[in-house]
């Protein structure tokens, strides 16, 4: 046999280079995403045979009280949680970033400290902050025993009204530096223009901020909002870790992620009411909910290069 030409060898090697990545991503990421479409049309507890039911899962989700009530409850609470998180991140994040952009003493140290929670695992953050807010934890001890401001300890995570906001604050504590970094880099990026404009018309600092800094914050705000939104609507780690799949107390911390988890694997070992088809339908609906935001993000990133 003749020696293989360069082009032939190059072609074979190209295929060989492409194969591992494509197989890995294809089997364990792309295929499941595509399979959502098919799986959402069947009724299947995960073992045994699957029954084709058409759009029945979606109908149940919209109309049947058992699913509808859970879905609506999870969705509303998910939105509430998102609003709390994004509100605190944008407000506090902007304030802190703005203060850091001035000639503040110790800026480097503050930035390093603020960034510290970012690389921590969600599981560690959840348990750490849980220990802080426990009735016998540091916060209650401080306000009840040390200061004497509170008569009795507050059970943050045991209260149906407080549990969800508390989890939202955990999230904000963990991810605040993300907002700070993005907003700060937007402010720093405008610095030269700001300087020149300030020199030219000698405007007051507040007017400068309003005229020059705030407009450039808009893109950073949008980016933070979109990223946090995609995350909060699919990632229910805090609830799962601290409240379990039943999202107690009384499902007051239930979000779409926990609802999806419960539907796939049940709330406890004895659950019988599990349905992979329904889980796929919930996943698909959630995907459609966050798709506009996610698409926006992807297009923005693609335009960049």
């Amino acid at each position: 046999m003749a020696k293989m030409s360069y082009n032939r060898k190059a072609n074979l090697q190209r295929i060989a280079l492409l194969t591992p990545g494509v197989l890995l991503f294809g089997i364990f990421n792309f295929l499941p995403l595509v399979a959502l479409l098919g799986l959402s049309l069947v009724d299947w507890p995960g073992v045994g045979s699957a029954d084709f039911v058409g759009l029945e899962n979606f109908r149940k989700l919209a109309l049947e009280p058992y699913y509808r009530d859970q879905f609506v409850n999870a969705l509303v609470q998910n939105i509430w949680m998102f609003v709390l998180i994004i509100g605190s991140m944008l407000l506090l994040g902007s304030l802190l970033a703005l203060l850091l952009s001035f000639g503040t003493n110790g800026r480097g140290a503050y930035r390093a400290i603020y960034f510290l929670p970012y690389p921590l695992a969600g599981a560690a953050v959840a348990f750490l902050l849980d220990l802080m807010v426990q009735p016998r934890g540091a916060i209650n001890t401080f306000f009840v025993k040390t200061l004497g401001w509170w008569d009795a300890p507050i059970g943050f995570l045991g209260d149906t009204d407080l549990a969800l906001p508390t989890l939202a604050m955990f999230y904000a504590w963990h991810r605040m530096s993300f907002a700070i970094v993005l907003i700060l880099s937007a402010i720093v990026g405008v610095r030269v223009i700001l300087l020149e404009a300030a020199m030219l018309d000698g405007a007051s600092r507040w007017r400068m901020l309003k005229a020059v800094v705030f407009p450039v914050l808009a893109p950073a705000f949008v980016l933070i909002t979109v990223i946090v939104m995609v995350d909060v609507f699919n990632n229910a780690d805090y609830t799962l870790l601290l409240m379990g799949p039943e999202a107690g107390p009384l499902r007051s911390t239930d979000v779409l992620g926990t609802f999806l988890f419960r539907t796939s694997f049940g709330g406890s070992a004895t659950s019988v009411n599990v349905n992979f088809g329904m889980a796929a339908a919930i996943g698909l609906v959630t995907a459609i909910l966050i798709l506009p935001a996610a698409l926006f993000l992807a297009l923005k990133n693609l335009r960049k290069d």
């Binding site: 792309f30 995403l33 399979a35 959502l36 799986l39 699919n234 999806l260 995907a287 798709l291 990133n301």
Partner: peptide
Amino acid sequence: LFACFMIGVIIPIRLALAPLFTIV
């Protein structure tokens, strides 16, 4: 193919929990 990878960026894999579990 690149677009397929970008779909993976857009849609979090957690939402495909059920099919992924089945495949694994």
